[in-house]
């Protein structure tokens, strides 16, 4: 099963490489990883998505917790949560394709953020599935470039991951 693990990490040199190293060292799978400082500059927030059975996920969270720089973590998929990913996608758009692409962008509630006579650059946010679906409706021959941020997630309601 797919899990989203959210980690509060000391914002120190080398902390991130320890997290990444752990996954390759122990043969854990990593699908996406995002990291940035939080409102507290001494802490980074890291979100990673991974796939594994319960036993593997248990080992992943235990090993992450063992890293000295990991302050706290939560497996968001254990409760109600919201996930978002941002995608920038550059699409070939000439002639009839221009209207076609525009229509898809509207349906998916995306935005065209850059235009040339032959290209639209589209910004789209949402769950990863939605981004996948958007890519599918565009003719692969017209997809010039895809940039995705990886998943960010947060628990619903009062629950927070904080110190």
């Amino acid at each position: 099963m797919r899990h989203i693990i959210s980690v509060l990490l000391e914002n120190e040199a080398g902390a991130l490489s320890r997290v990444v190293g752990l996954f390759s060292q122990r043969n854990f799978n990593i699908e996406s990883l995002t990291v940035a400082p939080t409102e507290d500059p001494t802490l980074s927030r890291l979100t990673l998505t991974t796939v594994g059975n319960d036993r593997v996920i248990e080992q992943i969270t235990k090993h992450l917790n063992k890293l000295i720089e990991v302050v706290k973590l939560v497996d968001l998929t254990e409760g109600d949560h919201i996930e978002r990913e941002l995608m920038l996608i550059k699409v070939k758009a000439v002639g009839a394709q221009r209207a076609e692409v525009m229509r898809s962008v509207e349906i998916f509630r995306g935005q065209v953020i850059d235009v040339t006579s032959t290209v639209y650059t589209v910004q789209l946010a949402g769950e990863s599935d939605k981004l996948d679906a958007f890519i599918k409706v565009i003719d692969p021959a017209n997809v010039l470039e895809v940039v995705r941020t990886g998943v960010s997630g947060i628990a619903r309601g009062e629950k927070t991951l904080a110190l």
Partner: peptide
């Protein structure tokens, strides 16, 4: 620090 990362409890520079 990089070489020993997977074989230490912790390391620092």
């Amino acid at each position: 620090v990089g070489i020993t990362r997977p074989i230490v409890k912790h390391n620092l520079s």
